[in-house]
Simulated assay, not measured.
Amino acid sequence: MAESATQKASVALYHYLCQNIVGSEEHVHTIRMMNTVSDNLQSNNKSTFITSGSFGEGLQMQGSDLDVMVVMKQIEVCEDTQIYLNADKIQFKMVLEDTQPGFSKLRLVHSNHRGIFKNCVDIGGDFYFSNILFKQNFSNDMFSAVHGPCVSDECGLFDFASCLHSKLWITSSKQWITRSNNSWPKYEVKQTIVKHGVLFVPVGVKGSSQEELEWRLSFSVGEKLLIYSFTHTQLLCYALMKILLKDVIVLDVGCEDLLCSYFIKTVLFWLCGKCLHQNGDLKT
């Protein structure tokens, strides 16, 4: 049966994206492996480096900056009040009252490091971690601009987000674990994501009365692992959607602030899970 015009166009687009935009599967795998090696070499007993953003996902997109998350190992976040106190750690407890979904305040539970109080706000005898004071510790002549949870260079080429870690999965996201395992992602991928835990990045809800004390829950590592589980065709679709957003949608004055790449990624995740749940498998 002869190929239709649509099939020919799809194949041509696939080859163009592989040759000129994203690269082959081997090329993407090489980028990811290089990131892993680089992260491991930079990490030490005080911090863990995680290359994130498009490059961390294996995409070298034109005009993209370099996003790096630095997890502070000496600080732990917990959800349960019944926690094991570690004398060598600074420990904070999640406080969800009066916060929007996806955000939490962090109340100091234990610390033998007096310096941490300089980064906290005293409210009725309880000390809450200030995301603003925390970010100021990492601002310098080279990284003087603040971009959301990140400190950035003036040219916007590098974004560094120092963040905190909870080893345990949080209650509000447990539904993601227990829903049907017949859909994407595979059970093994899901378990790896859950074992990693949750990150907290220093940024609050813009305009909130408690913006300085709010921290955004981040599943960046889990999202990266989900992207890693994509077929190459799915990855090309993801790249194509990012290009469409950057080169078409945001150039329209009326749509400039309508969408962001995170929304695009979330929609694609939903579609992958939906298609696999209905069809049982998705080869392309």
Score class of each variant (00 low, 15 high):
273 G>F: 04
37 V>S: 15
23 G>Y: 12
277 H>R: 07
115 G>M: 02
105 K>M: 11
130 S>I: 00
93 K>F: 02
130 S>P: 15
171 T>E: 15
122 D>F: 06
47 S>Q: 09
278 Q>W: 00
91 Q>I: 09
60 Q>T: 04
114 R>C: 06
46 K>N: 12
258 L>R: 09
99 T>A: 08
153 D>H: 08
130 S>H: 09
149 P>K: 07
23 G>L: 06
157 L>V: 03
142 M>C: 03
204 G>D: 07
69 M>D: 15
108 L>G: 03
122 D>A: 05
261 S>R: 10
175 Q>Y: 13
43 S>K: 02
27 H>F: 14
147 H>I: 01
50 I>A: 02
168 L>H: 13
133 L>Y: 13
140 N>T: 01
56 G>A: 07
268 L>H: 15
19 Q>Y: 08
228 Y>T: 00
106 L>I: 04
162 S>Q: 06
227 I>W: 12
158 F>S: 03
189 V>K: 02
170 I>Q: 14
52 S>E: 08
44 N>Q: 06
248 V>D: 14
160 F>E: 00
210 Q>S: 14
169 W>Q: 03
81 T>A: 12
150 C>L: 03
270 W>Y: 10
283 K>E: 11
145 A>N: 13
222 G>H: 08
73 K>F: 03
12 A>G: 01
22 V>K: 03
221 V>F: 14
82 Q>D: 06
97 E>D: 14
188 E>H: 12
5 A>L: 09
220 S>N: 07
200 F>W: 10
268 L>Y: 09
262 Y>W: 10
76 E>H: 11
110 H>E: 03
173 S>Y: 15
8 K>Y: 05
128 Y>H: 06
46 K>P: 00
151 V>Q: 12
155 C>D: 15
196 H>E: 09
123 I>D: 15
149 P>N: 07
153 D>F: 04
224 K>T: 04
230 F>D: 03
131 N>E: 09
264 I>V: 14
153 D>I: 00
197 G>L: 04
